[in-house]
Amino acid sequence: MSEQNVTNILVVGIGGQGVMTATEILAQAAIALGHDVKKTEVAGMAQRGGVVSSHLRFGPKVLSPQIMPGTADLLVAFEAAEGLRWCHMLKPGGLVLLNTAHIVPPVVDIGLYQYPDDPIGEIKARGYQVHAFDAMAIALELGDVRLGNTVMLGAMADHLPFPAEALLDAILQRFAAKKPQMVELNRKAFEAGRAAEKSASRAESAEPVPAQ
């Protein structure tokens, strides 16, 4: 949190992945707990496969809506290379929750640019922590790719300055209003994301120990 007790969460990915919806739900959870909230994104042409970065700031009073480089408390990356692109926004040593999916744009396909060989390794080399998991696979396992969004929210649950239940409530409320038949599946997706993040976190803390 910054000096004014404001929490900065940056959620990044690609148009169509549900980045903005995820941040919106997170914002609703913060509002329900009485926080002031501002949310902004640069998503000029998100519809057409562009980069989306959604800034969420909440606390007693939020002034500027933008998170400045080096000040994000948490980075949530819906795609691996996007995690690398935005990691400089984190506080030194900060944490990236990362979906391991690689989404390759046409400029890479036609050979103009290269997709990084090891985005996670590069993020770590810059001194940040990474908890990585395959959110798409978890969502497919539950039967619907669109649950990826909720899986990512579940992954954030234990890294927020408020109880995980507040976030779950915000998700379920949204679905209860729009698609009641999806409530249970989303609860499962949330828990699956939360569990995947936990085991990724455990794997990371175990990492320095040489293999036995």
Partner: peptide, 16 residues
């Protein structure tokens, strides 16, 4: 100067 952004390929908008 804070940490500099990592050089990552661009994602220019594409047609649908």
């Amino acid at each position: 100067n804070l940490a500099q952004p990592a050089p990552v390929f661009p994602r220019p908008p594409t047609m649908c």
